[in-house]
Lab assay of single mutants.
Amino acid sequence: MQRVNMIMAESPGLITICLLGYLLSAECTVFLDHENANKILNRPKRYNSGKLEEFVQGNLERECMEEKCSFEEAREVFENTERTTEFWKQYVDGDQCESNPCLNGGSCKDDINSYECWCPFGFEGKNCELDVTCNIKNGRCEQFCKNSADNKVVCSCTEGYRLAENQKSCEPAVPFPCGRVSVSQTSKLTRAETVFPDVDYVNSTEAETILDNITQSTQSFNDFTRVVGGEDAKPGQFPWQVVLNGKVDAFCGGSIVNEKWIVTAAHCVETGVKITVVAGEHNIEETEHTEQKRNVIRIIPHHNYNAAINKYNHDIALLELDEPLVLNSYVTPICIADKEYTNIFLKFGSGYVSGWGRVFHKGRSALVLQYLRVPLVDRATCLRSTKFTIYNNMFCAGFHEGGRDSCQGDSGGPHVTEVEGTSFLTGIISWGEECAMKGKYGIYTKVSRYVNWIKEKTKLT
């Protein structure tokens, strides 16, 4: 034993070699072989497995989906700052455009905790909710729209109204504003409101030439003092309507412009014939205590009207009353817009006519005020429907199939267009061939041609 100890002390290297040989010859039971080890760690190889990531292109799944990435790591994937920024906006807080917040056709661009709407022409605001041009839906104005110097929408209202708090709607500024039905039992019968379409306001006024200088022999019209197929109006439903009495009662109609003036057809009036105007009328054979009678003290036909040349060209006249009318729910003026808007309103496509005229061709006159909704007829169809001249200051309205029309005794009465609950004068009943005849239409004086003249002559002093 002493000898062994001496050998170990003198030859430590020998001992180490012996131990190493023993270990190498022993069977290893701690580690699995290569094949079995792979069965336990069965993990798919990654895209760049075996390579240094710093030297390969980034992978979106590896960089940002398996674990949260930084902007720089995302930049490695896209290799483009702009594309990385677009991805980053949604990656950080989701897609803010998912709810489609942009209105009126706006395009949404996502941002971090926010979004941006790219608005089409005519709109602005956070969600493109603000109209900035009158060309689109009248700028959301209830009545009139004008573009300011910086191309912003400025709404306005006709006389007797003021802008509401929203700067879009119009509200009454006087007790009985024009064009409004205020009798409670008839307010439910107000005709369907007309909503502004998209309009090209630059070209809204037709490029028409008034044929002022045409000389033409007097034409022989049949029954051209021209509501057939209409309905009984309720008291106060058309408070701007008046009836004219002269040699015979209810020979023509008219509309209240203001307390002192009536507008009617020029062919209705004769110099030297006494005319009485009755406002607030409903049943011409009954006294309903809503009527107001006034005498006409002055007749002003349009300066281009000449019955000797043509009885229905420039067929418009103004009547001055001896005493002002007292405005109330049964006696209310009709609204008159400017030339541009009167023309736009007419193009809405349908209007209402009213009167006490004959209820059928050569038949009896109506006792109760009649009204009828009539569609506008395109000019080409209008011209083809008659052998008589249709001037540019006239328009056609009615039904091709016949059966409904204005008729004798309705002449001078109103053709009105309702705009968001307020009625505007767009025409004056003038003439036609018979009444409600198939293929024939009622012919009306186009008020847009005469609004400046009306307003100039009827100013209240």
Rank of each mutant, 00 (worst) to 15 (best):
L23D: 02
M394L: 08
T29W: 05
I284E: 06
R46Y: 11
N138G: 05
T417C: 03
C69T: 04
E129P: 00
A164L: 06
L130A: 08
V181F: 05
V263F: 01
C157N: 00
Y201W: 09
M6A: 14
S169Q: 07
T209R: 08
S25T: 13
G94W: 06
G106N: 00
A397Y: 02
E171C: 04
F345D: 01
Y91W: 04
K274R: 11
I275L: 11
Y441L: 11
A266F: 02
V331A: 06
V419W: 10
D150N: 11
L41Q: 15
C145G: 02
Q143S: 01
K152T: 13
I336Q: 01
C268I: 00
T264A: 06
F55N: 15
D200Y: 05
K455C: 04
N113A: 10
F388V: 15
S220T: 08
T218Q: 08
S385Q: 13
E10P: 13
S365G: 06
F224Q: 06
Q2T: 06
V353H: 04
A279N: 01
V353Q: 04
I443A: 05
Y450N: 01
W431V: 14
F238Q: 04
F238N: 03
M8S: 14
L367E: 13
T332A: 11
D93V: 08
E124G: 04
Q167T: 09
V183Q: 13
Y22T: 08
S182T: 14
E420N: 09
R364Q: 09
C134P: 03
N343W: 03
F345M: 08
F221H: 13
N38K: 12
T422R: 03
K457V: 09
K274Q: 09
A308T: 11
H289M: 09
A26E: 02
E159I: 07
N38H: 10
P120Y: 03
A164F: 03
V242E: 01
A192M: 14
C141G: 00
Y312S: 04
T209L: 13
D212C: 07
L346M: 06
Y441A: 07
G230K: 12
Y115W: 05
Y391E: 11
A308L: 12
R43V: 13
F424R: 00
S114Q: 10
H303M: 08
K438Q: 15
V77K: 11
Q143T: 02
L52C: 06
C155D: 00
Y115D: 00
A436Q: 11
L425E: 00
K311E: 05
G179W: 01
K274W: 04
D322P: 00
Y91N: 15
I15K: 07
V416C: 05
T426I: 01
A250W: 06
V273D: 08
Q241W: 07
M6N: 12
M6G: 11
V269I: 13
G50M: 10
N36V: 09
I390W: 08
V77C: 06
V153P: 12
K137A: 07
R75Y: 08
C97V: 00
R62S: 13
E86P: 14
E67H: 11
P101F: 03
T186P: 11
R226A: 07
D111F: 11
D110S: 15
L211Q: 12
V257S: 00
R226C: 06
I300K: 03
K440V: 04
S70F: 07
N100A: 05
H415M: 03
V377D: 01
T271H: 14
S423I: 05
Y450L: 01
E401K: 15
